[in-house]
Amino acid sequence: MSLDAATVRRIAKLARIRVNEEEVSTLQNELNAILGYVEQLGEVNVEGVEPLSGGAQMALRQREDKLTDGDMAEKILANAPDRIENFFAVPKVVE
């Protein structure tokens, strides 16, 4: 399976990363090299094998559904690139 330039552009779009034409061709080569390398997994027989999603040898813990903290708007907004009062500000989305 080999990626063409259009697919590289589509992935970049999905990943929300702007790429120029020069980057598309570099990425196409690099991504194909990586995909070529992982292709060898095809030779492993995984019939009946359960997928392993995590490193923990346990079920995920659940906690009680209750508020444990809050009331820290200033702390949360302290790193905002742009804010208006207690809101994150972004360019206009709806005309």
């Binding site: 999905l14 990943a15 990425l27 992982v38 492993v44 995984v46 094998v49 997928p51």
Partner: peptide, 30 residues
């Protein structure tokens, strides 16, 4: 970082998830 985000996005994308990501998780179990 861009390379890895792109690879990750691709192996999780519709139509490729089973062939790459799910397969890798199974081999991880092995």
């Amino acid at each position: 970082v861009k390379r890895r985000i792109m690879i990750g996005t691709y192996v999780l994308s519709h139509g490729y998830y089973d062939a790459y990501y799910l397969k890798a998780q199974k081999v991880r179990n092995l």
